[in-house]
Design a protein around this nucleic acid. Structure first.
Lengths: 125, 125
DNA sequence: CATAGTGTACTAACTCAATAGTACACTATC
DNA sequence: GATAGTGTACTATTGAGTTAGTACACTATG
């Protein structure tokens, strides 16, 4: 389930950021409890707590003792998180592919191909 | 220099794979000694050795005791490594961006923009 | 008030990555 | 033969991440 070469708590943070940025988790919405999320992800509660705490220190969620953890209502914050993650993904791809010796046209073509195959798998257009 | 959230030896492996796949390091060519590479990367020799050993177990390099470590001369091997790395990069981008809620057109546009800005930085066309 | 669900704190143990330092075996070259 | 450069092996230490288990404080609800 998780990439074994990067800390799990960081991967959990990314998953939640994706849920927030994509709208799958709404602004002000309640996150699963630390214990429930741990069961869902097959992981130790402490690891989830670590992720939640880091997310709070980044201002993406906030907690109310005894009640739970909630998604921030600061839309600007969410926008900036989305930009950061997208930036990182694009940079990783561009730098990595360039390092491998691919040309820009090839890179774009490979991505289009990937999408094409992905839609076949799902039965899309 | 290195991403602090993934093992350094894995990142060194990727750097060398890129050098091999891009042709910056030629087939059969000699890699820097463990000690020299450690100095170049500002890292402990043991860490470089770890990377070299893993690369050898993957068949990307081979060693001759007392002489050094050399790039494989198996071109098919190099081709498959290039494919694996490219696959991984494209999948990471596509899955990550999709998870963030981006549409395919947006993704391709963002990459083109990134390249455009990159060429501005280098003064390219 | 009692209870259940929540975040939070703490200790302990284990593994892996990385560093430091030393030493040995092999090869090529002078 | 001596030397320098190479891979290799080994021990020891440090730190981070993860798990396990327990316990406490707060909130809402009955």
């Amino acid at each position: 389930m998780f990439d074994e070469n990067t800390p799990i708590y960081l991967q959990i943070m990314d998953l939640i950021k994706q849920d927030v940025c994509s709208g799958r988790m709404s602004m002000g919405g309640k996150l699963p409890s630390v214990r429930d999320k741990a069961i869902e992800l097959q992981v130790n509660p402490n690891t989830v707590q670590h992720a939640y705490q880091e997310l709070e220190s980044e201002g993406i969620v906030f907690t109310q003792r005894g009640m739970g953890t909630f998604v921030t209502e600061d839309e600007g914050k969410i926008d900036s998180v989305r930009s950061e993650l997208a930036e990182r993904l694009v940079r990783q791809l561009a730098d990595g592919m360039t390092g491998l010796g691919f040309q820009r046209r090839q890179i774009l073509r490979l991505i289009e191909e990937y999408f094409k195959n992905a839609s076949d798998d799902v039965g899309g257009r």
